[in-house]
Amino acid sequence: SAGVPSTIIQRQRRELHLLMAELKDRETELNAMAASHLKQHHAWEQYRQRVLTLEQNCARLDEEVQMRNEVIRVLTKHVRVVETREKEAQKELDEARQQICELEKEQQHISEKSQDFQEKNQSLNSTVMALSTQVGSLQVREEELSSMLKLKDQDVAKASSYILDLSGRLQDLETSLKESRSQESKLLKDLQENKVSYKEARHEVTQLKNLGLAGVT
Rank of each mutant, 00 (worst) to 15 (best):
A34G: 08
K24T: 12
K24E: 11
T28E: 06
A32I: 15
S36E: 13
R26P: 01
L30E: 14
R50F: 05
L38K: 06
E27S: 10
A32Q: 14
L38E: 09
A34Y: 08
M20H: 14
Q49F: 05
L19K: 08
V51P: 03
S36K: 14
T53Q: 13
L19A: 07
L52H: 02
W44G: 03
V51L: 01
L30S: 14
R48D: 05
A43Q: 03
H17A: 12
W44T: 07
A21L: 03
Q40R: 10
Q49P: 02
E27F: 03
N31P: 00
K24N: 13
A34V: 07
N31W: 04
S36Q: 14
T53L: 08
L23P: 01
H41Q: 15
Q49R: 00
L18S: 04
H42F: 03
A32K: 11
H42Y: 05
Q40T: 10
R48F: 04
K39V: 02
D25M: 10
H37A: 14
A32T: 15
K39F: 01
A21G: 06
N31T: 14
N31V: 13
Q40M: 05
Y47Q: 09
A34N: 11
K24I: 11
W44N: 11
E27H: 01
H17G: 09
H17Q: 11
H41D: 15
T28D: 01
D25R: 09
H41P: 00
R48Q: 02
L38H: 10
Q40G: 03
Q46F: 00
Q40V: 08
Q46L: 02
L52F: 04
L19P: 02
L23I: 02
A21N: 06
T28F: 05
E45N: 02
L19C: 02
H37N: 15
T28V: 07
L23Y: 00
M20R: 15
L30G: 11
H42G: 11
S36W: 11
E22Q: 11
M20Y: 08
T53C: 06
R48G: 04
D25I: 06
L19H: 09
H42D: 15
H42C: 11
L30K: 13
M33E: 10
N31A: 15
R26T: 07
A35M: 11
H41G: 08
A21P: 00
A34F: 12
Q40C: 02
E22N: 07
L23E: 08
L38C: 10
L18R: 09
T53G: 07
E45A: 00
D25C: 12
E29Q: 04
L23M: 04
A43M: 04
A32V: 15
H17E: 13
K24R: 10
K24M: 13
M20K: 15
R50L: 05
E22A: 06
A43R: 04
N31I: 12
M33Y: 13
H37L: 12
H17Y: 01
L30R: 14
M20D: 13
K24F: 13
H17M: 09
